[in-house]
Design a protein around this nucleic acid. Structure first.
Lengths: 141, 141
DNA sequence: CAATTTACTTGCGAATTGCAAGTGAAAAAT
DNA sequence: ATTTTTCACTTGCAATTCGCAAGTAAATTG
């Protein structure tokens, strides 16, 4: 497995800027949440799982971008030629700590839902992340 | 100190969505980076420190939004009536782990700069965050 | 083979972004 | 005291992006 160089130019070399250019929009992280925590794997599942109501063209665009950035991988479903199966790459799985910290931050400072998840995250953050990572690696089959 | 209810409606109650609605754009996190790691405190400093070249209208808008969301605090400089001094609130300081994880993720998977910072973060993540938080709390005077 | 499902694309108005230029108040220089 | 400079923005406008509704094409189901 080989790493591809990024062939477009970033605004700066700062690592945070790289993250922001890949993830800094209103939808990418939510798609990743649906993959990590809800097991969404297909276009339809993303549309249905999305609590926030993502538009179809935006979803298609974001899936393309996430794939271009090596965060997710798309391959046709062997059982159903219409379907694409989206899975997280290693790089995508490595975002688990980022997502977790963002969830914990909002849960601390905003009035949010999904309390059972929060409690589990709070109780043992490292264990929670490890469990998610383990499950996602297994799902890469 | 009292928490204000958010009086506009979120797309969903998911905590990650709350984070994304507050921080999910191309500039907010970079401004926070400049506050946390470079000590930027005024409009001019943000413009000068910004490696990425933020536009003046966008900067003004983002500072307003960050303040509305309780992430930063603005108060006029007593020594210079033109200046506003922006500082991180407790809520803003609590974003240190989020920023750190995003930096570490990009540093691992992309070709980025600022290697000394990365090395320090990697060596002891918790200590790094604790140090940043300590410094920022002190700066709230 | 007709109907349905899946994964998109297209069109288009609305909102957001980014650049350049301008404004107004305060401070510094003369 | 008056001019000049600095600072923190705002305004105008073109270009890009977003979001909704509708449409399309291929594969599958009945």
């Amino acid at each position: 497995m080989q790493k591809k160089a990024v062939n477009f130019t970033r605004r700066s070399l700062c690592p945070l800027n790289a993250s922001v250019e890949m993830l800094g929009d209103r939808w990418s992280l939510l798609i990743l949440r649906d993959m990590m925590l809800r097991g969404s794997r297909t276009y339809k599942e993303f549309l249905e799982a999305s609590l926030e109501g993502i538009a179809t063209n935006i979803l298609a665009d974001r899936l393309r971008r996430l794939e271009r950035n090596g965060i997710i991988h798309a391959k046709p479903d062997a059982r159903d030629g219409r379907r694409m199966i989206y899975t997280l790459t290693r790089k995508g799985i490595d975002l688990a700590p980022v997502l977790t910290e963002m969830v914990l931050w909002a849960a601390k400072h905003e009035r949010t839902g999904n309390q059972p998840l929060i409690r589990k995250m709070c109780a043992n953050k490292q264990a929670f992340i490890a469990e998610v990572v383990k499950r996602l690696r297994a799902a890469k089959e």
